[in-house]
């Protein structure tokens, strides 16, 4: 079984590339940090409305926002590999096909993990500390990383299908704010218009946000946690299925 070792070596390759191009780590961080530092201050009066500290409330959403836009780097990376011929070079070896994708996705998960840690540290500077303490930090980071892995699958599939980094970026840019605003990331559903409440209730970002927000503000809430993992798992299965399907077609 070469699955595990192949996955590891592919993961290692991406990690080396990440370390040597640190810009890739900070690329998607810009927006969330602006949100954290400016948006939460600008709208701190929301806190009064919501009856909580707004920075504390929005941190979960901002962490997820980063995971969401960060995930789209995966697709552009695979496009680079297709264009340069490196993917073909790897495909000419007996490397496990699923490992080639999984190695990439795990590196995406790691990147989101590291980025989220940076955001959480900044948030800590603004007085945000999870109600669940250190274990809470770990659970938050793992959950976000899992979310990042699942979402990266979408961008990988898009990259494989369109073979165009611009398209992947375009779609990511178009989706980010609508999906973010129509979720519980920045506002409680009770204060949204009814139609938006309905959308938000089915928005996968909401599920992940709710689980993380509970870890930060409330404590261990089994209900939100299990729902989030259910939804993220479902997304992961769907996007990885789509990715594998597109991947097969690349070799035609």
């Amino acid at each position: 079984m070469t699955f595990i070792s192949d996955t590891y070596y592919m993961f290692l390759r991406w990690m080396k590339k990440l370390v040597r191009n640190p810009i890739l780590l900070f690329f998607s961080l810009f927006q969330p940090i602006i949100f954290l530092l400016l948006f939460t201050q600008l709208f701190s009066s929301f806190g009064v409305l919501l009856g909580v500290n707004y920075t504390l409330f929005a941190t979960a959403g901002i962490v997820l926002q980063n995971a969401f836009s960060s995930a789209f780097q995966s697709g552009t990376a695979i496009v680079d590999d297709i264009k340069s011929g490196f993917l073909a070079k790897i495909l000419a070896t007996p490397a496990n096909r699923a490992s080639i994708l999984l190695g990439r996705l795990l590196s995406d998960a790691f990147r989101v993990f590291a980025q989220s840690l940076i955001i959480l540290l900044l948030a800590y500077g603004l007085g945000v500390f999870p109600a669940t303490g250190i274990l809470g930090y770990i659970l938050i980071l793992v959950t976000v990383a899992f979310f990042g892995l699942a979402w990266s699958g979408i961008s990988l599939a898009l990259g494989l299908r369109t073979k165009s980094a611009e398209t992947v970026f375009g779609i990511a840019g178009t989706l980010t704010f609508p999906l973010l605003f129509m979720s519980t990331a920045l506002m409680k559903p009770a204060l949204m218009p009814t139609w938006m409440q309905n959308v938000s209730a089915y928005n996968p970002i909401s599920f992940a946000v709710n689980a993380i927000r509970d870890l930060i503000m409330t404590g261990y809430v089994w209900n939100s946690f299990s729902q989030a993992y259910g939804v993220i798992s479902l997304i992961a299965v769907l996007t990885l299925g789509a990715t594998l399907y597109e991947f097969r077609k690349v070799v035609s």
Binding site: T2, Y9, K16, K17, F86, A88, I90, T93, P94, A95
Partner: peptide
């Protein structure tokens, strides 16, 4: 020519070897 330019020459070769177990 296809190599991973972020990797060193040695790393490129080692990756190939690993993928061939």
């Amino acid at each position: 020519t296809v190599i991973d330019e972020d990797l060193t020459g040695r790393e490129n070769l080692i990756l190939q070897g690993h993928l061939h177990q």
